[in-house]
Simulated assay, not measured.
Amino acid sequence: MKILIIGSEGFIGSHAKNFFAKSNEVWGADIVDKKFERYYQLHIEHSNFDFIFESQRFDVCINASGNGSVPISINKPVFDFELNVTNTIKILDAIRVHNPDCKFINMSSAAVYGNPSALPINETVELKPLSPYGWHKLYAEQLCREYYYLYQIQTINLRLFSVYGEHLKKQLFWDIYQKSLRSNEIELFGTGNETRDFIYIKDLLNAIQNIIDKGLFNGESLNVASGVETSIKTAAEIFCSAIDSNIKIVFNSIVKPGDPLNWRADISKISSFGFKQTTTIEEGLINTVKWLKGNK
């Protein structure tokens, strides 16, 4: 199988590149200037994807590119729209014109849900995003449905919950680690009682493999998560214990704009494809700390 990973040098993309290269022909594309074999360099401002699909025919395209930061989307909504919406339709249209048999996997986000009225969250609940990031991920999902229904391009949206692991240099655990280098007392936003559904990067990759093998690719959206609800306080305590048992965590009770309160996913759809969580939050966070300590 020939797989193209757009955003191949980012957190999810780089892991996906290594994972799928074990048994497939994998090509990467990103804005990073690297002289790799089977790699396309993209322009940082004026993205164009036609030349990629003109030069090769792919079986699967995984779009792991875009802005992944809620705060950036709030401060720079046009920038977020261009990366998460405009680039999505450019990729889809390049596939339509040059490689219509290519399956397209779009990395969406649980941010499309906002604050759900009940847990676990299934894919049919009303969508109420809290941030430009969430809205733009929803627009990208709608584009995938549009290209399936109007042009028969095989598309699928993966609503990723809180993905973490080695090589992630942003969000909660990266923030905690950076603060731990400066002080044994760490202040975090919120009360600590907010919850997330964390999924370790290796489990995400297994889920993507299951979806490639068994997904319908009919424009639908699937939750990709562990199905386990964990409080921010619990996750932070596990993480900090692996760094230094003397670290003290203080929550400031301030909720950041765009942040949801509680998440736990209904993962019955991807479970029907054979997905099972293999890494607990404890194991995944210990692995993450080992990587961080080894890459100071």
Results as ranks from 00 to 15, higher is better:
165 G>F: 02
165 G>Q: 03
166 E>G: 05
166 E>H: 06
166 E>T: 14
170 K>V: 02
172 L>I: 09
173 F>Y: 10
175 D>W: 09
175 D>P: 00
175 D>K: 11
177 Y>L: 00
179 K>Y: 04
181 L>D: 05
182 R>S: 13
187 E>P: 02
188 L>T: 00
189 F>T: 12
189 F>S: 14
190 G>R: 10
192 G>W: 02
192 G>T: 00
194 E>Q: 15
196 R>M: 05
197 D>L: 05
197 D>Q: 06
197 D>H: 07
202 K>Q: 15
210 N>T: 08
211 I>P: 03
213 D>L: 14
213 D>W: 03
215 G>C: 09
215 G>D: 07
215 G>S: 12
217 F>C: 08
218 N>G: 15
220 E>L: 11
223 N>T: 00
223 N>K: 01
226 S>P: 06
227 G>V: 01
228 V>Y: 08
228 V>Q: 09
230 T>W: 05
231 S>W: 04
231 S>P: 06
231 S>C: 09
232 I>W: 09
233 K>S: 14
234 T>K: 15
235 A>M: 07
237 E>R: 12
239 F>P: 11
240 C>T: 15
240 C>Q: 06
240 C>K: 03
242 A>Y: 11
242 A>G: 07
244 D>M: 10
246 N>Y: 02
247 I>H: 08
248 K>D: 10
249 I>D: 03
249 I>R: 04
251 F>S: 00
251 F>Q: 04
253 S>K: 15
254 I>Y: 14
254 I>R: 14
254 I>G: 05
257 P>C: 09
258 G>L: 06
263 W>K: 14
263 W>D: 10
263 W>Q: 12
264 R>E: 11
266 D>G: 08
266 D>I: 06
267 I>M: 08
267 I>V: 10
268 S>P: 04
268 S>V: 05
269 K>S: 14
269 K>M: 13
270 I>R: 03
271 S>F: 07
